[in-house]
Design a protein around this nucleic acid. Structure first.
Length: 444
DNA sequence: TTGACTCAACATCCTTTGCTACAA
DNA sequence: TTGTAGGTTTCCATGTTGAGTCA
C-alpha cells in the first residue's frame, strides 16, 4: 500500500516512482503534482495498492448541453478523448471553444479553464452560460470566484496555484502556445489534473519551447489545416505581396544605420546569422557602449524599412481602390499606426487605447460605421475582432504565428467573396527578411 | 467604480558577403 | 590548402497584458 498526497503544487509519495525523487525535508518521494497521472498509472500497473489523497475536487455543477459539433470538431474531440490528454489545433474561427465545452460536458468533473486575457475570461464565461446553462466561476480581472467550472487567467493561475492545484480533474489551456513560457509552465506542473486539453491555432513557438507540450499538456493529437475548412466553413482567401522601394532619403539613412552595425560586427569579428548571434550582441550591448550603438542602429534601420513612405503611398492607392471593402491595417510600431490614423482619418487601436474606446471602435467597425481601422499587434490574438474582408500588413514580426493570426482575422465565411491579405514589403531591406521568415513554416 | 500609475512577465529580436582556429 | 566548427541565457528596445496600489 502506498500513500499519495498533494502539497502546494507537489505530489508526495511514500514509495518511489518514475518522476519522483527522495526529499529529506518531507521524508518521502516528491515530484510536481502534474506527475499524478503517470505515478497512479505506474502503481496500478505494478499491482501496488494506492491510498489516494491527492485530489480534493470541487463539486461539478448541474449542466445541460445541446452542443452540436461539426464533423471535424467531433473527430478532433473523439481523437483527444482516447487519452483525454493533448492539444487540438484548429484555425481561428473554426470553433475551439465549443470543443472545449463539449469536452467538459462529457467528462463531467470539476474543470479549470486557463486563458491569457480578461477578454477571453469573459468570453468563456459567456459561452459556458449560453451553451452549458451554468454560471461559471471567474478568477482574475477583478473576480475571485472559485466554482466547479472556473475560468482563470494565466497570471491568476500562477499566483493561486498552490491552493487550487488539486481542486480540478480537468484543465483546459486556451491559447496553449503561452503555456511553455518559463513562468506559465509552472502552472501545468503544479496542477494535479489528470485530464488536459490544449487549444490553439498556432502551436509553434519561435523560442523552441513547444517541445515541452508533451510533458505539460500532452502532444498535438489533432490538427485541422486552414485548407481543409476553406470554402465550407472558412472564407476562400488570397495572399498578395507588393514590393516597394525606400525613398532616396530613406535609403541613405537606412544604409547609414546598417553601416554602423556592419562596421561594428566586422571590427569585433562577429556575425549576425542566427538568433544566438543576435542574443550575443544584445548581451554585449548591456555593458559595451559601441555594441549598444550598433544595436540601436539596427533598431533604427529596421524602423525605417518597416515604416517607409512608399508603404504609405501604396496604402493610399489601395484604400482608394478597395473602397467597398472592410479593411484592417496592421503595423509593427504604434507610431506608424497613429501616423496612418492621422493621415487617413482612420480610428487606431494600440495597447495605449483605453478599454472603452477600443470597444467603441470595434463596435462601430462591426456595425459598418467604420470601414477601415488601423492597429499595431493588439488585435492579433485574444480579442473578439469583427470580421474584415481585407487585411493590409504594413509591418510585423517574423513569426508564422502572427501571420496566421492576422490571416485569421479575414477568414470568417463570406458569401461569394474572396478574402485578401496584402503585405507591403520594403525591397532590399531587413523588412524583406521579416516577410520571408514569417511565411516559412506556415501550413495552410 | 474608475482611472492613472507602476511593475513583472512575456514576446520579438538573426540569415547578402566578407572572422578565426583548428582538423583533415 | 580547404572545410568547418566555433559561441548559447538573462535582456539593447518596443509592444502588450494582468495584477496591484492609491486617489
Amino acid at each position: 500500500m502506498v500513500q499519495l498526497r498533494y502539497f502546494k503544487g507537489l505530489l508526495l509519495s511514500d514509495l518511489s516512482a518514475p518522476g519522483l525523487v527522495w526529499n529529506e525535508e518531507f521524508k518521502c518521494y516528491v515530484g510536481f503534482a502534474s506527475k499524478y497521472r503517470d505515478v497512479l498509472f505506474y502503481f496500478k500497473r505494478s499491482n501496488i495498492k494506492v491510498e489516494d489523497h491527492v485530489l480534493d475536487l470541487l463539486p461539478f455543477p448541474i449542466i445541460s448541453d445541446n452542443i452540436k459539433l461539426r464533423k471535424y470538431q467531433e473527430d478532433a474531440l473523439y481523437t483527444w478523448f482516447r487519452n483525454r490528454w493533448g492539444i487540438i489545433v484548429l484555425p481561428t474561427g473554426a470553433g475551439k471553444t465549443v470543443i472545449g465545452l463539449k469536452a467538459i460536458a462529457l467528462i463531467k468533473l470539476s474543470t479549470l479553464i486557463v486563458v491569457p486575457t480578461i477578454d477571453l475570461l469573459n468570453q468563456w464565461h459567456e459561452s459556458i452560460k449560453e451553451l452549458l446553462n451554468v454560471e461559471a466561476g471567474r478568477i482574475g480581472g477583478g473576480y475571485d470566484d472559485l466554482k466547479g467550472i472556473t475560468v482563470i487567467t494565466y497570471d491568476s493561475a500562477y499566483s493561486k496555484l498552490e491552493s487550487i492545484g488539486n481542486k480540478f480533474a480537468f484543465v483546459i489551456f486556451d491559447e496553449v502556445h503561452h503555456l511553455p513560457s518559463e513562468g506559465y509552465s509552472i502552472i501545468a506542473q503544479g496542477l494535479a489534473a489528470p485530464y488536459r486539453l490544449g487549444l490553439t491555432a498556432t502551436p509553434e513557438r519561435s523560442d523552441g519551447r513547444d517541445v515541452l507540450y508533451p510533458s505539460l499538456v500532452g502532444p498535438i493529437v489533432y490538427r485541422v489545416p486552414v485548407s481543409n475548412l476553406v470554402g465550407k466553413y472558412l472564407s476562400n482567401f488570397a495572399i498578395q505581396r507588393i514590393y516597394v522601394n525606400l525613398t532616396k532619403d530613406e535609403e541613405k539613412e537606412y544604409k547609414y544605420y546598417r553601416g554602423i552595425l556592419r562596421n561594428f560586427l566586422r571590427k569585433r569579428g562577429m556575425k549576425l546569422t542566427s538568433l544566438s548571434d543576435f542574443n550575443k550582441l544584445v548581451k554585449i550591448a548591456a555593458k559595451d557602449k559601441e555594441a549598444r550603438e550598433a544595436l540601436l542602429a539596427w533598431h533604427e534601420a529596421l524602423k525605417i524599412a518597416v515604416n517607409s513612405r512608399a508603404k504609405i503611398e501604396k496604402l493610399k492607392e489601395l484604400l482608394e481602390e478597395l473602397n467597398n471593402e472592410k479593411i484592417i491595417i496592421f503595423t509593427r510600431n504604434t507610431s506608424m499606426a497613429y501616423e496612418i490614423s492621422k493621415l487617413f482619418l482612420i480610428p487606431a487601436i494600440t495597447y495605449k487605447t483605453p478599454k472603452a474606446e477600443r470597444l467603441e471602435i470595434l463596435e462601430k467597425f462591426k456595425a459598418n460605421e467604420y470601414r477601415v481601422i488601423v492597429t499595431s499587434s493588439v488585435l492579433d490574438e485574444g480579442v473578439d475582432v469583427p470580421d474584415a474582408s481585407v487585411a493590409i500588413v504594413l509591418g510585423g514580426y517574423g513569426t508564422s504565428r502572427q501571420f496566421m493570426q492576422r490571416l485569421g482575422r479575414i477568414l470568417r465565411k463570406k458569401e461569394n467573396k474572396i478574402a485578401r491579405l496584402i503585405e507591403i514589403v520594403s525591397k532590399g531591406t531587413s523588412d524583406y527578411n521579416l516577410s520571408r521568415r514569417r511565411r516559412q513554416n506556415v501550413t495552410f
